[in-house]
Design a binder for these strands. Structure first.
Lengths: 227, 227, 227, 227
DNA sequence: CATGAATGAGTATTCATTCAT
DNA sequence: TATGAATGAATACTCATTCAT
């Protein structure tokens, strides 16, 4: 697509080869960094794994750090795609929320190395870089907040500040993903998504307790973070 | 004075001094490991900070690893104490839940280095050790589940499996704590606790949507993890 | 040229260069370890001497210990060759014994560092390794004992157990070599070999004393170590 | 015994205590240095063994080096005594030579640590100090050469330069002692002494070979080291 | 283009020695 | 006098990166 020219000058074939090789390296690197941890992952070993020379890796990525960050970025790109696909699979906005959550949990269940990469990035580049995860999360915030706002205006969600809803759901997913990985929880992502959604949608209080507490529909508590 | 041991002459071991020195080292080490990250934290610099010789640190802790893990453990002990205190401050069980959440968020707001230590531990000792955080979390699980069970039996919470509630709240807090730290959120812990609790207790759906979805009091959805 | 392997492009491994470099390192290391002593010999300094980076030495030898032991082994290989050459230089078996002794003493006179390496090995690897010297000595024992046995059968040597003769000559050379080095004796190796051989062959007793003591040809004293 | 004074000034008792304590330390140190090797022998461990504080050892010996060398010196003093006793046990001078050799070999058989101390001293103080062994050996040289000279004048030994005889016997013993220790030979010292003496006295040649070679009584070969 | 030989900065830990108690 | 707390010099080894072939 990039070069539609039938016969450009130079070496057109190599571009494709170069991209494919790059992908191969990133694939192997993702697993390798995740299994060893960034500091213990040495390039020589990765080169051996890939059956290429060390120098070759350096031809594709200027440094270990750069390779690692490319690895994380690629992973986050894939996560974003997966979530978007999960959203697009439903029509009803509330169902779309469920779709997003399922996609998120599925993704990390299928790619355990993804979680490890997030940790390693934060631990090893704490001062040098905003965590890629949050770069992406923020990039999608407005788009997703808009959706929530529509639901509120449609009267389907309580009138709570949209950031608050986004934060709670985002933080809950983030915490769930880490915990799943760290303690080795083996739940089916879809079951877990359902449980989680149930509480987020309905809360944990019983009907009687809700009534006893006199919930007001529009505003359960004064909104402190509107400003 | 403490021990009437028949020790001969010579410089007596002062237990109190020893303990105090140990605490001083742990205090400094917590901040130091958090600010540098485990791999970059070199003992020489820590010794300089403490104005003692490197050897002195090694008299109190046999290795860098040991010192670091002691640091994490101490922090988790303090967190547990803070949460317990937050619980004990209220009588009503639902209020106690709020107290626990507030204590948790306050603790990490006041001790930003605590979050960093958790990351560093996971990133640098991934294969050697179960994360201390989850050792403590598990140690308190049964005790806290019992409390939830009572609330359900009292009809104040929906009849949802207790693990599910514990997991959701635990994961939400965990994710919130990390996110606060990573993106530098500066919310007042108590406000954040209130927001979070509001959603956990009441859910995000509006009353009309709840009714439209025909919520059943006892069991909103078939319980998949009872067995 | 040596190997017609189908290696792809890239810098080819030059086996000859590799071997030469290895020899250079061993040469320098032998002198260096001998002059400093094993514990004081630090690799950085050796690298400086060789005008290469520390890492280069580690490319050829995996550790300081390994390098040192390779150094000792090489020296013992050379000693063995020298002795064998000394033996082959003569035809008469008794002359061959003289040739071996001369070669031994010459070797250590010409390579003072060899003695030092033997000491250093024993002192620093006492529990980890049988001294290389004795590994080689034992490897040659049977071969040399056979020669002695022939001489006895030919009636040229007294009928003394072959081990006894081998041990005495071996121990005498070992002790002479150490003593020469430790006290800085500067005798010509060939003169010393002659003196030593004279006593070993003829003993120190005068003819009259021999007769007075009634030497029996075949067996001067009851053989206690035949079994 | 040392201080016969009934009531000297100061603290007379302590001198005896001090000497006894010093001996205890030297005893333990000899075995300790021999088993660990000088560099690995750390003073703390020796203090633990002796059940005293590290500082106490430093009250008796100013440094690790000094303690070690005192240990070697004491050992050599004992060896000298043992050899002298072996000499004094016989009247006939040739028997006395046998007595000395037996005493030497017995001493090292009974004190294996003695050999190790000699190695360790040479290996670790190569540039700082003439080996104690040779200090003592030289100190006794003249005395022993005189004895040999008398035997020659009495016509009982061949007229060989006395140094040559002393060197050969001395080197042979030195080499035998080391070899015994390094290869773990378990021969009875007296048997070994007899074997060794047999060869030194009578040589290894058969009578017929001696005659064939035309041994001249007084001078088997021109004396090259008289000057 | 691909390779791997060469490089050298960087760091946890030990232990002889001192000296306050 | 005896002790042991405190100290800090000293060193092998790894591995990201470069660049000659």
């Amino acid at each position: 697509m990039e070069s539609v020219s039938k016969r450009g000058p130079g070496r057109p074939v190599n571009v494709a080869i170069r991209l494919r090789r790059q992908e191969e390296i990133l694939d192997a690197a993702a697993k390798f960094f995740a299994s060893r941890g960034y500091p213990e992952a040495n390039i020589q070993e990765l080169a051996d794994l890939l059956q290429v020379g060390k120098g070759t890796i350096y031809r594709y990525f200027p440094s270990k750090e750069n390779l690692f960050l490319a690895t994380v970025d690629r992973m986050m790109r894939k996560l974003t795609e997966a979530i978007d696909a999960g959203i697009d699979a439903a029509d009803d906005p509330v169902e779309q929320l469920g779709g997003a959550i399922r996609a998120y949990l599925r993704f990390f269940a299928e790619h355990p190395e993804a979680t490890e990469l997030l940790i390693q990035e934060r631990a090893n580049f704490k001062d040098r870089k905003q965590p890629t995860y949050f770069v992406y999360r923020e990039a999608n915030t407005l788009r997703r907040q808009a959706r929530v706002r529509e639901l509120i205006q449609a009267g389907r969600l309580r009138d709570i500040p949209v950031e608050r809803i986004g934060d709670v759901i985002g933080d809950l997913l983030y915490g769930t993903m880490f915990t799943n990985y760290f303690v080795g929880r083996e739940r089916l992502p879809d079951d877990q998504a359902a449980d989680l959604l149930d509480i987020v949608l309905y809360g944990v209080l019983s009907e009687s307790e809700r009534r006893a507490r006199g919930v007001k529909e529009q505003d359960v508590r004064p909104n402190s973070d509107h400003g």
